[in-house]
Amino acid sequence: MTSESTQVSRENDFIPADEDGQFLTFILGNEEYGVDILRVQEIKGWDKATPIPNTPDYIKGVINLRGTVVPIIDLRSCFNIGPTEYGKTTVIVVVKVLGAKGERTMGFVVDGVSDVYTVEKSKLKPAPDFGGNVSSDFIRGLVTVDEKMVILLDVDQLVNRGIEQAIEAGSVH
């Protein structure tokens, strides 16, 4: 039924981009991405989601998270990174998203979770808009960790602008 999940404790919300912060990084395909640790509510093993009709493919559906219905987004599919295969390391990163209507809980399916890094604001570089998989609107910046490039995502922008708009555009109702 429900897989193991680790809860990450969280005190406040959002760190402004110009301060030092901690990020949880995860893998999608060959790339490493990160999200603000303060937004991460927990990490859950991948479980089948109930599909929602008439939604884009990358919306896998909804799952039951201790009584709350939470939508699951497959980021790999969302960023068009290539075919999604769910393996042993596949997990769901459950995040809090802030939007116009308040706070929402959502889950991102990722290939695997890496680590938590502290990022000094001075080290954060802006993302050039070279038309990569992810629109630069959703990127807070790039940072190099252990010689790897990590793309730090802006969860709110990603959900509220990117995904919502795509649903809006493709929606029949």
Binding site: P53, V69, P71, R104, H173
Partner: peptide, 16 residues
């Protein structure tokens, strides 16, 4: 359970 709390209204579906 509301679908709209964390997601949005879906036509033909009233909740979960």
């Amino acid at each position: 359970k509301s679908l709209e709390t964390n997601f949005r209204h879906v036509g033909g579906i009233s909740g979960a």
